[in-house]
């Protein structure tokens, strides 16, 4: 069984962390992964930086720009991760925009992921219909889970469709926004979390966007399987570096 699905079976709320590969320093990728696993994080999204990250707020945009300036490339990331499964056993997901994957070659990219031990992909600008028509068979051939997003504006019919197409979890975007930490969740989010929980989907949901601390993590996971922290972690990395990871993670739960 894929590591993601194994993890989803554990009887706990999952804490997942996103970081941009190549930030703050080019060679930080593996040290960050080791620290995250040692700190008890359940799953990691490794961001493949892109020049034009249009679903991201300023924090992740800036980290992407810095990572690219540091010299991060798709091939460089694969080289860094070549032996990652000697040290890391938690599920690893690559997250990025579709164009760099397309340029690498979708099949070559998926084959490389399998070889390294990547468990899934999140490509926000690869839409459901395109995925199903052109790429699903390739993803499946290389044992990769594809994670789709839903938002408060996603219709019930489309959520059902996405649930049907999902073979891991659903990435539940907390509010209509780009990525970035917010002060907290209001009534609108509570209603949305509630509405989705009542749909009794086949796929479990992990909430992302706007989760930054223990209270937002608690609120986001009340009715879902887990939550993803991105921008707040990037900010911590910028300030405290790799050595601050343990403290950051223990401040969440």
């Amino acid at each position: 069984m894929n590591r993601i699905n194994q993890k989803l079976q554990e009887d706990k709320k999952l804490l997942s962390i996103y970081f941009t590969a190549g930030f703050p320093a080019l060679e930080d990728t593996v040290p960050i992964l080791k620290q995250l696993e040692q700190s008890g994080v359940d799953m990691v999204e490794i961001g493949l930086p892109f020049s034009d990250p249009l679903a991201d707020g300023p924090t992740i945009q800036e980290s992407s720009t810095q990572a690219l300036n540091n010299g991060m490339t798709t091939q460089k990331l694969f080289d860094q991760l070549a032996a990652v499964r000697e040290h890391i056993s938690i599920p690893l997901i690559l997250m990025g925009y579709f164009n760099p994957v397309l340029q690498y070659g979708v099949e070559a990219f998926c084959a490389k992921c399998q070889e390294i031990g990547i468990d899934g992909l999140i490509l926000p600008d690869l839409p459901l219909a395109e995925y199903q028509e052109h790429y699903q068979s390739i993803f499946e051939q290389y044992g990769l889970i594809n994670v789709f997003l839903i938002t408060p504006q996603t219709s019930e019919a489309r959520i059902r469709q996405i649930d049907e197409a999902s073979n891991g979890f659903i990435y539940m975007v907390s509010s209509a926004s780009t990525t970035g930490a917010k002060d907290g969740f209001g009534e609108e989010q509570a209603n949305y979390f509630d509405r989705i929980a009542r749909m009794e989907l086949n796929s479990q949901q992990i909430v992302g966007f706007g989760i930054s601390n223990a209270s937002t993590f608690q609120a986001a996971t009340e009715k879902s399987k887990g939550a993803i922290i991105g921008s707040a972690f990037i900010k911590s990395l910028r300030k405290e570096g790799v050595s601050g990871i343990q403290n950051f993670v223990s401040s969440i739960r």
Binding site: L54, F98, P124, D125, P127, L149, Q153, S155
Partner: peptide, 11 residues
């Protein structure tokens, strides 16, 4: 062509 957009823009 096509519509390679994140789900947030889909509606």
């Amino acid at each position: 062509g096509g519509a390679y957009i994140p789900e947030m823009l889909y509606p």
